[in-house]
């Protein structure tokens, strides 16, 4: 067990290596040349944080906090900067609870939304496999009725994980698919229903309206549902992810974020920015192609692996 745990941590560390290089290594370099702390160091830190996609606002806040603590401690040991930075990042991330308790309702309804090409269907496939592995019964709703063969893509994942898939024809009303899936899940006594939706750019008002309608249908048919509305974000988009999260939050009250493709980018810092600016918890992160690479987000483990 301990061995396995270490293995997982190692994978996380490897997945975050690009972000580590862009953020922590640079902080080290900035500190290395200096014995004492001066304004130049703060400026340099700010640049490092902003270029790692932490966003201007969050970077500024972090630096102010570090500065404040150093002043209080009346220390000018540059090495403390890194320690404080790490602690402050953790305190931002810890501010939001994570994890999903799927046992609080039955069927537990998870709606998955996001822009095109972020990995919604793949995320659903991996989530389904995870829950099936825990012995739960899972039903998938093929709500992407727009893109060609999106339904079949979900069906492949359904087969792999051994879950049923409720589908309609391509081009049909996505709300109707979810309505049927909900009825089926209620009738069969399924534990978890995961609803796929078509990818949509967050700036398209009419498509966001369609999504709102889908959510309303769920609310009406199953009081308390959807229990989770997860927004899937592609970590490589950096700060644009913040804009996506904001607009999706306004439209469908997302309850959590799944951040995919973290291993492909040096922009992993965007996690911190999203949590800080929008106060939306990160529920899962994707650090590789394997099913086990989509994992619950643990703030302390994440920060430990990053630094």
């Amino acid at each position: 067990m301990a061995e396995e745990k270490k293995g997982l941590f190692q994978r996380l560390k490897e997945g975050l290596s690009k972000t580590h290089k862009g953020l922590v290594d640079k902080v080290d370099q900035a500190i290395l040349g200096r014995k004492k702390i001066d304004e130049g160091l703060y400026d340099e830190l700010e640049e490092i944080l902003v270029t790692s996609d932490l966003g201007v606002q969050t970077s500024y806040k972090l630096i102010e906090r570090v500065r404040e603590r150093l002043r209080r401690g009346e220390s000018d040991d540059a090495a403390l900067v890194k320690k404080y930075l790490k602690e402050e990042i953790l305190s931002i991330l810890k501010g939001t609870g994570s994890g999903i308790d799927t046992r609080r309702a039955k069927p537990f309804v998870i709606m998955v939304v996001g822009v095109n090409g972020v990995g919604k269907t793949t995320t659903i496939g991996k989530l389904a496999s995870r829950y099936r592995g825990e012995g739960r019964s899972v039903l998938l709703s093929a709500g992407d009725t727009f893109r060609a063969a999106a339904v079949e893509q979900l069906e492949v994942w359904g087969e792999r994980s051994g879950c049923g898939v409720i589908k309609h024809k391509e081009g049909s009303d996505p709300s109707a698919v979810l309505f049927d899936a909900l009825k089926a899940a209620q009738g069969r006594g399924t534990d978890i229903l995961i609803a796929d939706t078509a990818g949509r750019l967050h700036t398209k008002t009419n498509l966001m309206e369609e999504l709102k309608k889908t959510r309303r249908v769920v609310e009406r048919e199953a009081p308390g549902a959807p229990h989770e509305v997860l927004l899937v974000l592609d970590a490589t988009t950096g700060q644009n992810a913040v804009s996506q999260a904001k607009l999706f939050k306004e439209a469908v009250e997302i309850t959590g974020i799944v951040l995919t493709k973290l291993d492909g980018t040096a922009k992993g810092g965007v996690v911190i920015s999203i949590v800080d600016e929008l106060k939306i918890p990160v529920k899962f992160i994707g650090i590789g192609e394997g099913v086990e690479d989509l994992r619950p987000f643990e703030p302390s483990e994440f920060v430990e692996a990053l630094f």
């Binding site: 496939g125 893109r147 060609a148 063969a149 079949e152 893509q153 492949v156 994942w157």
Partner: peptide, 10 residues
């Protein structure tokens, strides 16, 4: 990718 071929056929 699952169903990528089918997507193009469609």
């Amino acid at each position: 990718r699952p169903a990528a071929i089918l997507q193009l056929k469609r």
